[in-house]
Computed example of a mutant assay.
Amino acid sequence: MADDHAHVQDFFTARAADWDTRFPGDGPAFAAAVRSLGLRPGDAVLDAGCGTGRALPALRAAVGPGGTVLGADLTAAMLEAAVRAGRKDCGPLLQADVARLPLRSGSFDAVFGAGLISHLSPPGPALAELARVVRPGGLLALFHPIGRAALAARHGRRITEDDLRAEPNVRPLLARSGWRLFSYADEDARFLALAERTG
C-alpha cells in the first residue's frame, strides 16, 4: 500500500503545476457530471481525489452557501495547485488517503470522484470507505471527462477485458463495497458511473 501511495504521489506531484493547463476544456464536462448527482442546496458533498479542485466550483454552486463541500486528495502538490487556482474558497481542502478518511460515518449526501478509480490500489477498500462516509441512499459519481476507448487511444493502448471501469467489472466491485450501480455511460466525451449507497 505504501508503494502504491508513493507511486500516486510521485505521478501527480510531477504533473500538478500544469495539470489545469493540460486539460483546459474540461469545465463543462465537470459541471454536467456534478449536475448528474442532483445535489440540493444545503447538501454535503465530498470531492474524493479532488486534485486541483476542478469540480469544486460546480459542487459549491450545486449545494449553495449553506451546503458543505470538502475536497480530499493524497497529493499535497495537487492541493497546493487548487489553492493557487482560488478553489479553496469553495470549501476546505484535506490531505488524506480516501481509503482512510478522518470523517464521521454517514456525514455526506454524495461523493464525486473524477479520475479516481484508476488510482485506487486496491479499489475495494477505498470504495467501501467512501460508502462509510455517505448516508444510506446517498450517491457516488465516478467520472472522467473522456471515455475509456478515447483515453486508451490517447495513451497508445487498447482497452482490455480486465479494465476496472468496464461495466461488468465495476458493477460487482461497487456492489461488494456498499454501492448499487444504477447508471453507466462510457462515451468518447465522458465516462460516468452513478451509484447509490445501499443499506
Rank of each mutant, 00 (worst) to 15 (best):
M1P: 08
A2K: 03
D3V: 12
D4S: 13
D4R: 13
H5N: 13
A6W: 01
Q9V: 15
Q9A: 09
F12E: 03
F12H: 04
F12T: 09
T13G: 14
A17F: 08
A17T: 06
D18M: 06
W19Y: 14
G25C: 00
G25H: 14
G27H: 06
P28E: 03
F30D: 11
F30S: 08
A31D: 14
A32M: 05
A33P: 11
A33M: 10
V34E: 01
V34I: 12
S36C: 05
S36A: 15
R40M: 02
D43Q: 12
D43S: 14
L46M: 08
D47C: 10
A48K: 02
A48R: 04
G49M: 10
C50G: 02
G51M: 01
T52K: 01
G53S: 09
A55S: 12
L56Q: 04
L56W: 03
P57N: 02
L59P: 00
A61Y: 00
A61R: 15
A62M: 07
A62S: 11
V63E: 07
V63L: 07
P65N: 07
G66F: 08
G66V: 03
G67T: 02
V69T: 06
L70A: 05
G71I: 10
A72P: 05
D73F: 13
L74F: 15
A77M: 05
M78K: 01
E80V: 03
K88H: 12
D89K: 15
P92G: 08
P92A: 14
L93R: 06
L93N: 03
L94K: 09
V98S: 06
A99D: 01
L101W: 06
P102I: 04
R104E: 05
R104F: 12
S105L: 05
S107Y: 04
D109V: 02
D109M: 04
A110Y: 01
F112V: 02
G113M: 07
G113V: 02
A114I: 06
G115R: 08
L120C: 07
L120T: 06
S121Q: 12
S121R: 15
S121Y: 01
P122L: 14
P122C: 13
G124V: 01
G124C: 04
P125G: 10
A126K: 01
A126W: 00
A128K: 13
E129Q: 04
L130F: 03
L130N: 08
A131I: 07
V134N: 10
R135K: 12
R135H: 07
P136T: 15
G137P: 03
G138C: 09
L139C: 05
L140Q: 09
L140M: 08
A141M: 08
F143Q: 07
P145H: 12
I146F: 05
G147E: 11
L151W: 15
A152K: 13
H155D: 09
G156I: 07
R157M: 12
R158D: 01
D162A: 15
L164D: 00
A166V: 06
E167K: 11
E167N: 05
E167M: 08
P168C: 00
P168F: 00
N169L: 11
N169A: 04
P172N: 11
L173W: 11
A175R: 10
S177I: 09
S177P: 10
R180G: 15
L181Y: 12
L181V: 10
F182K: 00
S183Q: 06
A185H: 14
A185K: 14
R190Q: 13
A193V: 09
T198R: 13
T198N: 09
G199M: 08
